[in-house]
Each structure stands twice: as C-alpha cells, then as structure tokens.
Design a protein around this nucleic acid. Structure first.
Lengths: 205, 205
DNA sequence: CACGACCGTTCCGTATACGGAACGATTTCC
DNA sequence: GGAAATCGTTCCGTATACGGAACGGTCGTG
C-alpha cells in the first residue's frame, strides 16, 4: 500500500484496543495468549505500527468478547450538523445488508434534519421501504401522498415513485429504514460520486 | 495463521462482497479501481482465498459506501439449528444501541425458529417494542393478545407484560426489533456478565 | 471476421504481517 | 538480596497479502 515503507493504520484502533484490554485487567501477554496470536502482534497493533489481518482482528475481538466493530469503530458516528450543511436533509448509516432467497434487505439508521424536505427518486418496481420512527415526527412516503408518523409508528410504501422525508416540529428526527429489493430487480446504480466517504452519506433511499 | 500453508478466511465475506458489488452494478475491475486496490486483491477476496488487511477492507468498504461491518458481518451467522437445539427459539444479534435525550434504543436482528414459541418476561413499565417482519410470518406481542404479521408489516406493544415470539408456517422467520427504554426507567441489569459474548445470544427481549 | 475494450483470473516480485525468541525492566517470593 | 516469574518491546526468518502485468474469454463495432 504505502510505498513509503511503514504503513500506518489509524492510531485510534490501537488506543481503543489498549483501552479495552486494560478495562478487562488483561496484560498484553495474557491477551495475546488468549487470542492465540503473538505478543509482537498485539504490541504492534496497540502502537499503530501494524496493519492487521482480518483473521488477527477476529481473534483479538473474540478474546475481548467484543464485536470487531468495537475495535475498528467504523465511521458510523453520530456526527453533528456536518453533512446537513452540505444541503442534505437525510443522513443515513447502513447498518446491515442481508440476502434472503427472494430479496435483499438493507437496513439504515436515518437522521432527518429539521426544516428541510428531501425528495428521493423512484426505485425500480417491486422495491418497498419500511420506516420505523425512533424519535421526533416524520412526514414520509410517496411524494403524492405522504403520511405523518411519531415515535413507535411505522410507515410502509412502494418505492417505485418519488418519495419524501421531512422532520416536523423543529427537531431532528431519527428512524430505522428497511429497504426490500426483490431479486430479478437489479439495483439502481449508486447515486453519488464513486469514492465518497463511507459511513455517513446522503440517503439514496 | 494456519501453518497449513493456505489460510482461508470466512467465505461468507466473499459472497457478501460480491453481492454488494453486483447490487451496485460494478464490475470487479471498476471496484478495484475505485478502491485503489489491485484486481487480484478483489478477486482473491471474493473467492475467499485471501485474508485481507484492515487497510484493504477500509478501502473496499469506502468504495462501496458501506461500513466495514457490512462486509465482515461479525459472527451474526444464519447458523442452522444449532442454538434452537439448546431450547432457544429466538436468536438475536444486537445491531446498534443509541441514546436519545429521552430514551435508549436497542436494535436487534431476530431469527425466530419455526415450530417453537418463546415467551419473554415483562420489562419495566414504559418499555416498548417495535417489530418489523423481514421474512416469514410472525405471531408476536403481549402473551394475552398476540398479533400476526407478514413481511413488511409491523407490530408494536408495551413490553411491561410477558410477550411471545413464534414463527408460523413451518419456516424460520426474520425480523428487526427495536426496543425503546425511556430514561428514568432503569434498564434491568443485562442478564449476563458485562463482557458477555458479542454477536449471537439468546434474546432477552 | 479482425480489432479493440473490457471482463475476471492467474502469475510474479516485493513489501510486510506473522509468531517465536531474546531482551531489559519490574515485581514477587523465599 | 538473589532467583524466578512476568511484564512490554524488539529482532528475526518465514509465510503471505499486496499491486502490476500477462492471460484467455466475451462482447460491440467497423
């Protein structure tokens, strides 16, 4: 990767790892033993001088009894207003994707910024969206006939028409969005520029 | 790691990666280009013949606009009947926990094993559960008055009474469960020791 | 049908992540 | 106060993940 000689990985991972280890009262040697990896590996990781293998990460995460994401801390951050300023009303984080025999499901956590209404274009026929309101009041659904839902309420609609998202009441709203794409229906190409940052992004919902 | 010569990594990662790539209509070459990694790397990854580096995983996840966890999918496995045999009908994977000013939300992915009905004890007053059916047919809600829901349907109920989960129709069912615990109402202590195994565990829902 | 563009796979040399061993520094126990 | 145990770091040879290049296959196009 870097032809620079010493490839560094995000030092935050090392700090996180050391924190988790010490929180459990484990010595570096002991953790290495439990994870079945070399002490040199753990040491190097904590210092951020190694670019670990997935296998190594699995082993260490398992030894600490945490999911890998606790170590890698993906970008899935709460992130203040940063992206709202860019004119995006809906900030989404992809939580999980799973394939069933008949369809693919994508699960998003949404934050809808107050005072802006965002319209998303139609998906291919057959795609349905299911939104569960977590906090705030959300007006969403087909642009032609949106519905209003509060905490604990749900809205579902066929996503083959343009649809809107808006937070009512002056406060940001939060929701869980499940998009079901039947197979046979090819997913539309990604809306944005290719190499944009992972984690938070404008919802292509 | 394996001194066997060829260390294999979980082939599910490869399948997941290929699924995400194809869902976006990207060719392998194009993905490699966007991620700034070699085609050989992507190819090897999809075939499960490489044990990738964190840096590589980051680059690819970013190019796909997904968090790394969408690729690594921690242990949250479909796992046949293994845990059902242990008398557990509901297998849950914690996807995310988030705190809002007024409440804490926990989001689970559930797999409900067919043919068994599981009853969960009452939560403290104020706790509500919201279940979205992903696949199959689920009978759930307060034990005294459960409801039946199919794919895309939702059920909500106050969780201060015993409640049940059951998959109808002879097939396992899948769902997303959101548990809202208002603050002031101290959450019941987590059933296990603090650092209990991440990923799959019996639902304390 | 020849040609170019692109696909996904495989081969290859190099950079580096790996575990084991050696090291000095502390701490524990007799 | 010396021996043993354990700590975290560093050195080292080996295994392997990496990107680039070469390859055959499949399209569109002239």
């Amino acid at each position: 990767m870097g032809t620079d000689g010493t490839s560094r990985i995000d030092p935050a991972i090392g700090r996180r790892l050391r924190g988790l280890r010490e929180a459990r009262g484990l010595s570096l040697s002991e953790l290495a033993r439990r994870a079945g990896v070399g002490k040199a590996t753990v040491s190097g990781l904590e210092h951020g001088t190694r670019n670990p293998t997935l296998e190594t990460m699995y082993a260490i995460a398992a030894a600490l009894s945490v999911p890998m994401s606790a170590l890698t801390l993906d970008p899935g951050a709460p992130a203040g207003a940063a992206s709202a300023v860019r004119g995006t009303a809906v900030v989404s984080t992809l939580l999980e994707v799973f394939r069933e025999p008949g369809a693919t499901y994508e699960l998003f956590r949404l934050r809808i910024v107050a005072g802006v209404e965002q319209t998303s274009p139609a998906h291919p026929p057959g795609v349905t969206e299911h939104l569960s309101v977590v906090a705030g009041t959300i007006r969403t659904g087909p642009a032609a006939a949106p519905l209003t839902a509060g905490p604990g309420e749900h809205v579902s609609w066929a996503a083959d028409v343009p649809h809107v998202y808006a937070a009512l009441g002056g406060e940001d709203a939060h929701a869980i969005l499940l998009i079901r794409t039947p197979h046979d229906t090819p997913h539309d190409p990604p809306a944005g520029p290719p190499g944009r940052s992972a984690g938070e992004q404008a919802a292509q919902a």
